[in-house]
Simulated scan of single mutants.
Amino acid sequence: MTDQVLILGGSGRIGSKVAADLLAHTQAKVTIAGRNLAKGEHKSESLGDRVQFLTVDLADEKTLQEAISAANVVVHCAGPFHYRDAHVLKLCIENRVNYVDVSDHPSFTRKVLEYGDQAQAAGVTAIINTGIFPGISNSMVRQGVEQLDDAETIHLSYVVSGSGGAGVTVMRTTFLGLQRPFEAWINGEWRSVKPYSDREVVEFPEPYGKIGVYWFDMPEAFTLPDTFPVKTVITKFATVPRFYNYLTWSVARWWPPSWLRNSAVIEFLSYVSHFMTDVSDRFSGIGVAIRSEVIGTKNGQPTRCCSTLTLTDTAIAAGAGTGTVVELLLSGQLKKPGVWAIEQALMTDLFEQVMQSRGIEIQHRIEKEG
């Protein structure tokens, strides 16, 4: 029988890129689901004969359960995840259907991780935080950790050009991330950090070069120290053109917290930002760069392992990151009942295999220190 993949939020920017990746690398039939019939049917037609659109509202229990029960794998792309609960995963567990999501908000990640025992008992493999960051970035960290005898510090930095080819949902995620301080694992203890603080200049591959990056609350800030016995995990983010960073920093620094917790303010900021990036994307592009640095020891000597990745379309990259996980689930190469962050479930050899199949090249550099 032909595999069936259900993508919730499938007519959005990220969901449709996941669908495109699956069409290119698997034989599965894909159902993209959403609330907007006209948009969904147009998107399904543009993707081809193996794609159909299904009108699904996540609040409609009956329709959602019927759609999930007909699939081999469900891919949750219906963000922003700040507003979501674990209901989709719960239904997948009840129907014994494997689950993948592109979640990028820590509160959602914590909610779904609570279902690990239920998923394991049902034989359901649930892989969360897939995509580009978190996602491919987490697997790059795992690559680095495995190069060392002992890892002590993980430093992840991201830079995105303009909108990254994504929609207004990503803008919402950015501003939702400014609402309150978050906990970061620093020198073996959890410390409170202000979002978009502590600017640090790091060097990315061309065309980015040296970019100032800022603390940002991401799921990998707590899944990575849970996965690897390290003392420090740093997650920092920036955008280009660089003036967007100064605008975001100003909002985080000067706007009253009550404003940032107001949904109307978040919507205003999101749509204004999206309008601005529609203009600047023509000049900046919509690419992404990741820099993963793992510091520790090898053969008793201090060693630094640095990995970098640059791609020209952030949304396509996110689609590939998630598509690879679905491909491995469908083929049976990835099977680990429970709920897992991507770096906990995806072995490095499989990660390198699927990256190579998509022409995604990761640069590595290992340096002895001292």
Rank of each mutant, 00 (worst) to 15 (best):
T2A: 13
V5E: 05
L6M: 04
G12V: 03
I14P: 00
I14H: 00
K17T: 14
K17C: 11
A19F: 01
L22S: 08
L22C: 08
A24D: 15
T26I: 11
Q27L: 14
K29D: 12
I32M: 04
I32D: 01
G34K: 02
K43T: 15
K43M: 15
D49Q: 13
D49A: 14
D49H: 10
V51W: 06
F53Q: 03
L54Q: 15
V56A: 00
Q65P: 05
E66W: 01
V73S: 04
C77A: 13
Y83H: 14
C92S: 04
V97A: 00
Y99C: 04
S107F: 05
T109L: 07
L113E: 13
D117N: 09
V124H: 00
T125W: 04
I127W: 04
I127M: 05
F133A: 11
S137P: 08
M140K: 07
V141N: 06
Q143E: 12
G144L: 03
G144D: 02
A151F: 00
E152G: 07
E152N: 11
H155K: 11
L156W: 06
L156N: 13
S157R: 00
Y158E: 09
S161A: 15
S163C: 02
S163H: 05
G164C: 08
G165M: 09
A166F: 07
M171H: 03
G177Y: 04
F182W: 06
I186V: 15
I186R: 14
S192P: 08
E203I: 07
P205I: 08
K210P: 03
I211F: 02
D217I: 03
M218C: 05
E220W: 02
A221K: 09
F222Y: 14
F237I: 02
W255D: 04
W255T: 15
W259S: 12
A264D: 14
V265A: 15
I266G: 08
L269F: 10
D278T: 12
V279A: 12
G285K: 13
I290G: 11
R291C: 08
V294H: 02
I295R: 05
C306R: 13
A315S: 15
G321I: 06
G323V: 08
V325Y: 01
V326C: 07
L328R: 12
L330N: 03
G332F: 03
Q344A: 10
Q344L: 03
A345G: 06
T348N: 09
E352K: 13
Q356K: 14
S357H: 13
G359Y: 10
I360C: 11
I362V: 15
H364D: 05
R365T: 13
